[in-house]
Amino acid sequence: MILHFTLNGQATRVECDPDRRVVDLLRQDLGLTGVKEACGAGECGACAILLDGVPRLSCLLLAAQLAGHEVLTIEGLAGGEAPHPLQEAFARAGAVQCGFCTPGMVLASHALLARQPRPSRQEIAQAIAGNLCRCTGYHKIIDAVRLAAGLSEDDS
């Protein structure tokens, strides 16, 4: 099928099978390898993208479902010359180790901050609970989201 959708702000036209997994479409066909795959079954969150602003699992989406919609991947988050503040905060707070969960974590955090600009540690943990990380113990990921939100350790 010919698929039309908006990808990282750009009108995109691509020919693909309608039942192609979106993670494969993005990684293999469109080269957006910041979208990771680690389980293929919706259990880890590494493949998260924003679909119309909502974090979704690209391993559980089919290409046809994108028609007419807006997709944001980690590559499109900064949208310019400088890193997005969340990316900067993840780097600064030490939230990145192997980094394989990081794109999904950043996007899940981005969606959280869009609806809750001053999240507590518990709210952050809840928001990223579907994104598995095997390296960090999550502590510094939560720190990073707080840092991006302009919150210090002492703010509740």
């Binding site: 919706g42 974090p55 979704r56 699992l57 579907g130």
Partner: peptide, 9 residues
């Protein structure tokens, strides 16, 4: 239920 990602899906 699940996780935020699963609930969105």
């Amino acid at each position: 239920l699940g996780s935020p990602l699963v609930r969105n899906q």
